[in-house]
């Protein structure tokens, strides 16, 4: 590895772009911008830095190396949880589950019902942020059951429940539970499950998913930056090989 050289991981995802700068020992900078502003991250890269990209638009971003977000997640998670068995990457547009014990993958990208977009849609209805929706769900003493597996129908169900007098907090809790139930279908039984991605910052979501799986989910610091970190670590590994 070149002395003093920094390694940059850029996760060009569908809703946000993230950059992690790693000096070979620790993260020295991390930054997240909306997906459309990924150019601004590239502008911060210095000439001698090795750049590894990941994420949906990884090939559009100038890079020396690239790898899929599934592999980036594996590398990034290993830094905080080297004994992880299963990774759940809770993204804005899809959910990816990797079983590290047998290297199998499952993804839910066919519709938004198993993704962060489901909560965004509901939050918009309530006129609040996704974080606000999560906090509202935390205040619930009970939750309503949302049975629709389609996010559009779930929203209709949610509206009719509110009209029938259900409390907003209980509906918010029901929405988190419905999303968690959908995601849980993809998750194999394991002791050590790690949740990453933007939705892993959502406490109500983690609570609901943990309750359904019967496990306490592990979450690394800055879960939304894990894939960018994994990409930077891949650049480090590649540099030491070459």
């Amino acid at each position: 590895m070149a002395a003093g050289r920094a390694f940059v991981g850029i996760d060009a995802g569908s809703t946000a772009a993230k950059l992690v700068r790693f000096d070979g020992r620790r993260v020295v900078r991390s930054r997240m911008v909306p997906a459309r502003d990924w150019h601004s991250l590239v502008g911060t890269v210095r000439p001698r830095e090795a750049v590894c990209t990941t994420g949906y638009f990884r090939r559009k971003v100038p890079h020396h190396l690239t790898l899929t977000e599934i592999s980036a997640a594996r590398l990034g998670v290993a830094r905080s949880f080297p004994d992880a068995e299963v990774i759940i990457d809770l993204g804005g547009q899809d959910t990816k589950v990797t079983d590290l014990r047998n290297l199998t993958l499952q993804m839910n990208d066919r519709c938004s019902a198993g993704t962060g977009a489901f909560l965004e849609q509901a939050a918009r209805y309530f006129g609040m942020s996704v974080e606000g929706l999560s906090r509202m769900a935390e205040r619930a003493r009970d939750r309503v059951d949302i049975n629709s597996t389609c996010s559009v129908f779930a929203q209709s169900e949610m509206i009719s429940m509110l009209e029938r007098g259900a409390r907003r907090e209980e509906v918010a809790a029901g929405l988190h539970h419905a999303l968690a139930r959908r995601i849980a279908e993809l998750v194999p039984d394991a002791e050590r499950i790690v949740a990453i991605g933007g939705v892993a910052r959502n406490r109500s979501m983690l609570f609901a998913l943990g309750a359904i799986l019967g496990r306490r989910l592990r979450v690394p610091p800055e879960p939304q930056m894990v894939n960018a970190l994994g990409a930077a670590l891949h650049a480090v590994a590649h540099s030491s090989q070459s």
Partner: peptide, 20 residues
């Protein structure tokens, strides 16, 4: 999306430049 899965599967199995 399917190509992404294939590529990730290739990486997991140790194929090509992205092998980890």
């Amino acid at each position: 999306q399917v190509r992404l899965r294939l590529e990730a599967f290739g990486e997991l199995l140790g194929a090509g430049k992205g092998a980890i």
